[in-house]
């Protein structure tokens, strides 16, 4: 059943511009560095001995912003497919469990974010090679592309929950706007704040912790959202 529901979610996401946004997310972050290095390459290369890592750091300044806001946009789009014409009642009156419907939406969203992270890796790699920055640090490249994805799973779970239960999409969009602020000024904030996690900055200096925390807390928030969704009457 879950496989069929996921197929249906993909079918419904046609012509909604999801894939364009996924592309823009992955590409946009690198495009900003194209402008940055295009304008002042000499200056930037002088800033560090390890040009590749410095380049990756520059990119990873923007990855959390794109992730947090991208999550807010994609979840709102995803739930508006049903919210806009009150199609929840049609969907839930089919022989499906509400839990599976919720899981299908979450899975499709997580998949889209994963594709965006993959695109980010490819574009980062491509432009890095173009800039000719020296030996390619593959480990760091993958780390800065995929760790933020796992670290942002709690945000995805939370935003999906808020977006499905809100009549008014202003609410999930506003939580997205609030959520982006910590990822932009992360240094001074406490480590428990989930919106800080995609920036991979923490007091232990161990970005991998946020991957595990992201998976754990993401699951937890996912279940809370799913059971709350199942508990509610369908409008």
């Amino acid at each position: 059943m879950i496989r069929k529901l996921i197929q249906v979610e993909f079918l419904k996401s046609k012509r909604k511009g999801f894939w364009l946004l996924v592309f823009l997310g992955g590409f946009g972050v690198v495009a900003l560095q194209m402008v940055n290095y295009g304008v002042r390459k000499e200056y930037l290369l002088q800033q560090s001995d390890n040009d590749w890592i410095y380049y990756l750091m520059n990119i990873s300044n923007f990855t959390p912003l794109a992730l947090v806001l991208g999550i807010a946009i994609l979840t709102s789009f995803m739930t508006s497919i049903e919210n806009e014409t009150n199609a929840w009642k049609q969907l839930i009156a089919l022989p499906v469990s509400k839990l599976t419907v919720y899981l299908a939406k979450f899975t499709v969203l997580a998949f889209m974010l994963l594709v965006a992270s993959l695109l980010l890796t490819l574009f980062t790699y491509g432009y890095g090679v173009f800039l000719d920055l020296g030996a390619i640090p593959y480990g760091a490249l993958l780390k800065y592309s995929f760790y933020p994805f796992f670290a942002s799973l709690p945000i995805l779970a939370l935003q999906l929950w808020i977006a499905t239960v809100s009549n008014n999409q202003a609410i999930p969009i506003t939580t997205g706007v609030i959520g982006v602020l910590p990822s932009f000024s992360a240094q001074n904030l406490p480590d428990w704040l989930i919106w800080k996690w995609p920036s991979l900055m923490n007091s232990w200096n161990e970005p991998i912790y946020y991957v595990w925390l992201g998976l754990g807390v993401g699951c937890l928030l996912y279940f809370v959202g799913m059971f709350d969704f199942a508990r509610r009457d369908v409008k």
Partner: peptide
């Protein structure tokens, strides 16, 4: 746009480069 998120997406695309 009828959808709430679409104008916001455009807004995000223009606002993030502000930092740069």
């Amino acid at each position: 746009f009828k959808s709430f998120a679409a104008p916001f997406a455009v807004n995000v695309i223009f606002t993030i480069p502000t930092i740069l």
